[in-house]
Design a protein around this nucleic acid. Structure first.
Lengths: 214, 214
DNA sequence: GTCAACTTCTACCATTCGGTATGTTTTGAT
DNA sequence: ATCAAAACATACCGAATGGTAGAAGTTGAC
């Protein structure tokens, strides 16, 4: 509410779009703490100070909210990733160094957001995937798959100039960093502390160094 | 039902205990696919061919079912782990080799259970933790924490005879393997394939080798 | 066979759920 | 100022939810 007015969002910043975003934001917070099925519409509306009329004006059903939310989250995370990857590439032309810098930037973000929920909406959805329609379920598979592919395209160039000390592919490295981050969130959630997320991310960075050490 | 009669369970194999276990088993399967809130009592009873009367005779509430289920799961997983760790230690006196063998045994289990759900009930609960009472929530924190400690005690002896090539503690290694497994489950769930779980587990084993390579 | 404890079923309840119908307010272009 | 579209509120609905009460069936010891 306070910062939203300053930001010149691309398309449509009308009153309606604002409350739609508000619903999505509130829903995300609640869902990450209570799960999708565990979050009722009344919960969302009570937390956002709205009513049923407002909700069903912006969303056809609760399931459509779920779809919109995972889509928005994916887009946001993607922008976040692209920005960091770009910054990393600007700092070094060497693919290995760029990847290491990227990982370091990621750690810094984890360290900065000490109070964040440390959650992944994809993981949240996947652990109750039968709640969603086919379209959303497909998006879950594709979305995480694309994440792995994105990491893969970050690691692949390294193999052109160096050879790993162990038998490993760029895709396997990509799967591992994705797993490490997902798992780190879970450990941090359990412990109520960002420590595990940071420690495991750093651990993977060291792993990457070891794999491609001279 | 078929195998249960052969197994001489420790305490109480009366009719009541059997249906209680049945409820727990059915509930676990459903919860891992639909989430806790997304699984109604009627779902569980329909799938197990029982009725409300039977359920509330064995459990005081749905929340108590959740508590009993996570407790039972923890005990089962713990036995599973202990058995594999013991087998690994029998194969080698060297702590590093024993750990590597353990990890390999784990991979073999993943490869064998190609059709299993690849899920962790702890992770499932944690992504809707607000649904549970304080006692269960505490168990979630402690349970995962203990897992990390168990892995830590497996890695700690390695440090007595070798020194790592990177700056890392036994606890950090423990957190990393826990994260890798948790994250691997999520990737496998998304992809509907055990591949990621296996690949990332193998990756950690290679990591351990690299860290303590001569 | 009897009886008491154990185990399960049936019928019901209050509340909450997602969703609808319709009314009221707000907005912005003219 | 006017008016239509956009945005939101109110009141309600049928179904599903977790849970309760008490009857009915089962079991095994005596």
């Amino acid at each position: 509410m306070e910062a939203a007015s300053e930001v010149a969002t691309r398309v449509g910043n009308s009153k309606g779009e604002q409350t739609r975003d508000r619903i999505l934001d509130v829903a995300k917070t609640l869902i990450l703490a209570r799960g999708y099925s565990g979050t009722s519409l009344d919960d969302i509306l009570k937390a956002s100070g709205l009513t049923k009329g407002a909700f069903f004006y912006h969303f056809r059903s609760k399931n459509e909210l779920a779809r919109a939310l995972i889509g928005k989250t994916w887009a946001e995370d993607h922008r976040f990733f692209d920005d960091m990857a770009r910054r990393a590439r600007e700092m070094s032309d060497d693919p290995l160094q760029a990847a290491l810098i990227f990982l370091r930037l990621f750690e810094e973000e984890l360290e900065a957001n000490l109070h964040s929920p440390f959650s992944c909406l994809f993981a949240s959805y996947l652990y109750e995937s039968e709640q969603f329609d086919g379209e959303t379920r497909q998006f879950l598979s594709d979305g995480l798959g694309q994440w792995v592919s994105i990491y893969e395209s970050m690691f692949a160039p390294i193999f052109e100039t160096r050879q790993p000390r162990i038998r490993v592919t760029a895709r396997e490295l990509a799967q591992t960093i994705a797993s490490v981050l997902e798992g780190g969130f879970i450990l941090s959630k359990a412990q109520g502390d960002s420590g595990p997320s940071i420690a495991t991310a750093r651990q993977f960075r060291e792993h990457l160094k070891l794999v491609f050490a001279d």
